[in-house]
Design a protein around this nucleic acid. Structure first.
Lengths: 167, 167
DNA sequence: TTGAATTTTCAGGAAACTATGAAATAAAAA
DNA sequence: TTTTTATTTCATAGTTTCCTGAAAATTCAA
């Protein structure tokens, strides 16, 4: 397969994956582009390669930096800013899990935990509601503990994960 | 807190969670409604409770059934169809992981695996590309095996998971 | 300072996604 | 059958999300 063709396919695929999981397509594509680039790229280069506007490129690069998976790189003698992606896939997945948990799961759990003792409502409805809420609580506690173990580890997370389980 | 208020909050929250993760809001809300309902609900009841149209309710209930997390229920003497949600949170998460993997991750991996030996392109670019692709491959293989172990288990998945690891 | 290069912002337009409701179809009862 | 009730479909409308491009702000060197 032609290199250029493979590159486009990868960027395209990564973009689709992202948008299926609530991450905007362009953001995922920029990330893919930086991921496979052996050298840092400037905003200009990203714009040109993906054929997107300056505003779009800038906003999404910024968002990727906020997520902690893309970094600014200063090139001596150059005035422009250059960007690289986190290349270590394990670090990458760790950051993504961490961020999504912090931004979405945690606020949701906090919001749900505000629901206290219920007043009114038909007895069977209240009972069912309380049962489901309590199950969700158990579930999320276990899932969270597992996620925390995974993300607090590094490349060898799998071993560390097991280690931590038994200590 | 008032029951009705808590119920609305839960449905609202579940909907937001869904849309953050690429699942349409109404679909998630219908699911939430069925989840906390002690008895099966008809399309009419869903429409009324969430204030949505017949078409919308029908399409999304159908989608939930396709996902395997909502079931038709026949009530003797009733002509209408009634629906219940999978109430076991562990089963639920298993189904969701399974389906998303099948529908999105698997096709993506299949698509990427079509990329074979590369022709053309600058040497350093080709090298970087191949390095990242190979890392992604290792990652996805490990992640997949873990997911498979989790979803093939049941309520006691955590225990089974460990068991399977060591045999 | 001044001014050129670069980055950021954001109003308005475009695109993608979702919902509506009425008509068509199907299924059960009369 | 025919009638009644329930379900599905789908063109259109509505909503949300995203992108553009130009103007404003910032940065840095002269």
């Amino acid at each position: 397969m032609e290199f250029q063709q493979a590159k486009e396919k990868f960027i395209q695929t990564w973009g689709t994956l992202g948008s299926n999981w609530g991450i905007n397509k362009t953001m995922a594509q920029i990330h893919a582009l930086l991921l496979i680039s052996p050298k840092p790229l400037s905003t200009e280069e990203v714009m040109e390669d993906l054929m997107i506007s300056r505003g779009n490129a800038n906003m999404n690069i910024r968002a990727l930096i906020d997520w902690g998976i893309v970094f600014k790189e200063f090139i001596p003698g150059e005035r422009k800013e250059y960007f690289t992606a986190e290349k270590d896939i394990w670090e990458l997945s760790k950051h993504i899990i961490e961020q999504r948990k912090k931004r979405e799961l945690d606020p949701m759990m906090r919001s749900l935990s505000q629901i206290g003792k219920l007043e009114g409502g038909k007895p069977d409805e209240v009972q069912e509601f309380e049962k489901i809420m309590s199950e969700l609580n158990v579930f999320s506690t276990k899932a969270e503990s597992m996620l925390n173990k995974i993300i607090s580890a590094n490349k060898n997370w799998f071993f560390n994960f097991l280690l931590k389980l038994f200590k």
